[in-house]
Design a protein around this nucleic acid. Structure first.
Lengths: 342, 342
DNA sequence: ATAAATTGATAAAACGTTTAACTTATCGGA
DNA sequence: TCCGATAAGTTAAACGTTTTATCAATTTAT
């Protein structure tokens, strides 16, 4: 409400002096007596500098636009939230804030366009990936971001042009659940993915198939099922899968929530875990730890990925040029749902 | 990057005309031919209006400051996230965005001060409560918010002056877990709370004690334990509690995560649930549903609370005056962890 | 034919901060 | 005594958008 002009008037100074002092308390361009008067006036009028005016003047907002191309409610899934936690922690250390401009458009491309459009003027962007967007959509999002001429970084989007600043959570070579199960003697492995067409699900599908075939095990598309990242849907689909394919000795699930749901199915079908069915999850979320038996999973270091992304972006804003790619590897968290076959 | 002036130049018009058209596509103050030239220029230069400049001019940012006095990582707890989901959904319907200005100060009061300070200029604020702040801290936060002269609403902060716009999730009268257990014949009920001194834990403590005493059952402070909202801590504390107080037939837990941890303790101690120990959680989170046996809990309608808060705030911004209080009641979700005693 | 209304535009001030350039006054040193 | 520093300020333009007031040209109504 109160402006720098009012402070200046109350302190008997010009706005310039007030601004000078407020932005550098130890400036020599304002005398000690004047400093005290400014402090008093600020206290009296509850003055806070207006970020909008200040951004306009300095051309620096200290604000990062968070772009989440999700049709689902934000903050509704653990994966995104953990990523956000990481981003946020790094940003706050460097004094940056976050801008969310949600949209209620109906396609993920429109959502991103609107988000970018409305947050125009902030210092950079983080583009999240969600299981709900396809490769084509992602590419359009990137194009849109490039038009802004501001630095941005993409978070865990597979198959990305490497000229783009990005943080990638790699699980294939290093820590595929399928490979883990294979190494423990499993040959009939079901796959529980998120959403058909989603970038992540597609990647995991291909990985699963390739790894099986490399090992000389025929891949049966019928043993792949989509749980839509939801507990209900996963329950239904896994139940159907296990009934139709009783030969399966293990399930590789794309998320811990889906793994926990699979565990419930096993219990309801009277299959003991891990004796009759092994289950591996992904994410190392609380759901895996609190399940009983506790679920073996792969820790994707999601929070760290968020931090790295923010770090990369901040470097870019500070002037470092060129694309850069950070790859985060997962690690297995061995718990009680995987059995080694003889 | 590109400004309205450049668009104007490219379209052979004045900035005023461009602004007029861009803010009202059907304006009659710009001719059809001119409109086309503007559209072309906008497309060519990838123009997006700068929200900072526009906010400065209109004195309206369409941005809500989200104030979360948390020392813990943001987005790290389900309760806050669900609240945020609600807030966000309502805001986005009305075209508002959210501003997060995290802080790394060391007390919750300083955090709030910094958040308010840095988001000065936005249209209103939502003050979240977290289990980590005390009544005194909350009161300081409110004072600070009042100084901004902007509308704000508090979310689920008990014992609040009713002149303040607020949304309260009430569980005492309507749906206390303690009462629920009492009505099912339990007399020795342990209480698992969040954090000592936290506003919410304090409220539930008092409720628990009062309800017991009203029913003529002596309240034993030794049967109250603090799980710090964490799975590990809850496990440890509940284990200690159950060992020291084997007479307990039921546990009222302040969150589903703590209830799920309690369930794990019971399993490890060889207590069957609900035959030998009944457990009730709170929040109706996925953890309660995915546990086995699934956990009886109380749905606090947290997302709805978030929505109401945003709605209240938006009304206030639109000019409606006076404090207003919205009370959301919980409902019981009956599942498998509570047994009715003879 | 003239007055009134409409159409299609523009100029300029305003929003609150920042900052480069400028102005005094005072003081120490040669 | 005068010069140069330094301290303690101020002025004014700029950032990008909005909006009120103004204007000229054209159309419509009488």
């Amino acid at each position: 409400m109160s402006s720098i002009r009012e402070i200046a008037a109350l302190a008997g100074l010009s706005p310039a002096s007030v601004s000078l002092y407020l932005n550098d308390k130890s400036t020599t361009r304002v005398g000690p007596a004047a400093k005290e008067r400014i402090d008093a006036a600020v206290k009296k009028l509850h003055y806070h500098k207006n970020i909008f005016a200040s951004t306009l003047s300095t051309q620096e907002s200290k604000l990062i636009g968070i772009i989440i191309p999700s049709l689902m409610p934000l903050f509704g899934n653990e994966y995104t939230n953990t990523l956000l936690t990481g981003v946020q922690s790094q940003l706050s250390e460097r004094g940056y804030g976050m801008l969310f401009f949600p949209s209620n458009a109906h396609t993920s491309v429109e959502i991103v366009e609107e988000q970018i459009h409305r947050s125009s003027g902030c210092d950079g962007y983080v583009l999240f990936s969600t299981g709900f967007c396809t490769q084509t959509q992602v590419e359009k999002n990137i194009l849109e971001l490039q038009k802004t001429d501001k630095p941005f970084v993409t978070l865990n989007i597979p198959e990305m042009d490497s000229a783009i600043r990005q943080v990638l959570i790699r699980d294939l070579e290093v820590c595929s659940g399928t490979r883990y199960l294979l190494e423990r003697g499993h040959k009939r492995i079901g796959l529980v993915l998120g959403r058909t067409g989603g970038v992540h699900a597609k990647k995991l599908y291909a990985d699963h198939r390739d790894i099986l075939e490399e090992s000389g095990i025929p891949f049966d598309p019928q043993t792949v099922v989509y749980g839509e990242y939801s507990a209900e849907q996963s329950y239904t689909m896994v139940k159907k899968l296990l009934k139709q394919h009783p030969e399966l000795t293990a399930l590789n699930c794309m998320s811990d929530i889906m793994a926990a749901s699979a565990l419930l199915v096993a219990q309801d079908l009277g299959l003991s875990v891990p004796e009759e069915l092994s289950i591996i999850g992904r994410n190392n979320s609380l759901h895996a730890r609190l399940a009983s038996p506790s679920i073996t999973t792969v820790d994707l270091h999601i929070e760290e990925a968020g931090k790295s992304a923010a770090h990369l972006l901040l470097e870019a804003i500070a002037g470092s040029t060129g694309g850069q790619k950070i790859i985060i590897s997962g690690t297995f968290i061995e718990r009680e749902t995987v059995r080694t076959l003889q």
